[in-house]
Design a protein around this nucleic acid. Structure first.
Lengths: 205, 205
DNA sequence: CATCTTTGCTGAGTAAGCTCATATTTGAGT
DNA sequence: ACTCAAATATGAGCTTACTCAGCAAAGATG
């Protein structure tokens, strides 16, 4: 077996692996740009392939469906929002407001481009959970729930199990409020308010 | 103006209207049968048109999309389940169990054919709310929330607004539990239990 | 370097939901 | 009964996500 030169890190990286990585990056960049510009529904997979300078079929070796491609693109944004929210929540003493500190950045990032945000949610719930980018997205929602549960556990009267269940409910509230067509034209603040009203009733009884 | 013979009821019903009505019924019947047999994803609109003995394009004069067609078919089942649940709830004194009396038939009817049930939910949340069958479906979810709110208002310590908000939260919990891929293979009882666990935490604190 | 195997790429082809120009049917006016 | 306008039906054709049989590149072997 030919031993491939090992760069500083120690991973064996052949041309094959490098090519693949580079292509994935081109695809991600192309998809991100086009989706952001015109919305996922107004972009064809052909356009993305052209912009990434690969064959139309190659695209589907890197993301099994167009939806997976959106997950790939949006996951990193979601991850950033979650990190922001977790940091914010630590500095907020009030229970409800701490939860909302986590909620707000997520809603904001989801609403940057409403159609993409809603399609992203749709993919998370109805897409194929076996796919890698979907798994990443699912992990993010789990982490979001954990962050919320952590905040709720500050309250001594809320046990670990109860906190987890409550966090799961908050997650459901977020999903429906962000996805509901009735909120399609509403600005971020309105959606956040709608969520806050429900979370308040949920946790302060 | 030619006055059309008015049958007993007094509505003027020309051949035009009758033909349309009859076609809609043929379409509904064909779609219902095929969807139930093989699942919405395994049936083509062409097949439905053939079975209903109409042209492929005609189908889309009666339902703008395939999803609308599913709403058309499933709405009546949902309506029955809701009626059942409302009746059941009246006979159950316990608060939580009364809510679950409404939840259970809805989950049962939604799970009769899992794929169709999930697609139905997807259409409700992400479909075009302008379309008639979608409006009907939305109305049913509103009625479900109202039924749940009514049960909750039995408790003197819960005001009308709070009951409505809680019912809305129950609705979100139901949606996510029924739609989540993680529950795809789970039997009705498991899903109902998952919902019950959350509703218990929600209302009995 | 020559050969072989494995992995990855390609784009023409397929399928299916939906559209739209054209044709047909209905009903009103005369 | 004849004519005209409006409503409705039709299916060939379009779009687009996705597939697959064949091809190319990378890496292993001697």
């Amino acid at each position: 077996m030919r031993v491939v030169v090992m760069a500083g890190g120690g991973q064996r990286v052949g041309r094959r692996e490098r090519n693949k990585q580079e292509k994935l990056e081109r695809i991600t960049a192309a998809a991100r740009e086009l989706f952001a510009e015109r919305g996922v529904d107004e972009v064809t997979t052909q356009e993305i392939a052209d912009k990434a300078d690969i064959g139309a079929g190659t695209l589907f070796l890197y993301a099994k469906t167009k939806g997976e491609l959106l997950l790939l693109v949006q996951n990193s944004t979601y991850a950033e929002a979650l990190a922001q929210g977790k940091a914010d929540a630590e500095r907020v003493p009030d229970e409800l407001e701490a939860v909302m500190s986590i909620v707000r950045p997520v809603v904001e990032c989801n609403r940057k481009q409403v159609d993409n945000g809603r399609t992203y949610l749709r993919e998370i719930v109805f897409g194929d959970p076996q796919e890698p980018h979907h798994r990443d997205a699912l992990l993010l929602t789990v982490q979001t729930e954990q962050a919320i549960a952590e905040v709720l556990r500050r309250n001594d009267r809320i046990g670990a199990d109860e906190a987890a269940t409550l966090a799961h409910i908050v997650s459901a509230i977020m999903f429906v409020s962000m996805a509901a067509t009735i909120n399609l034209a509403n600005p971020v603040d309105d959606v956040v308010r709608e969520i806050r009203d429900q979370v308040r009733v949920l946790i302060s009884r």
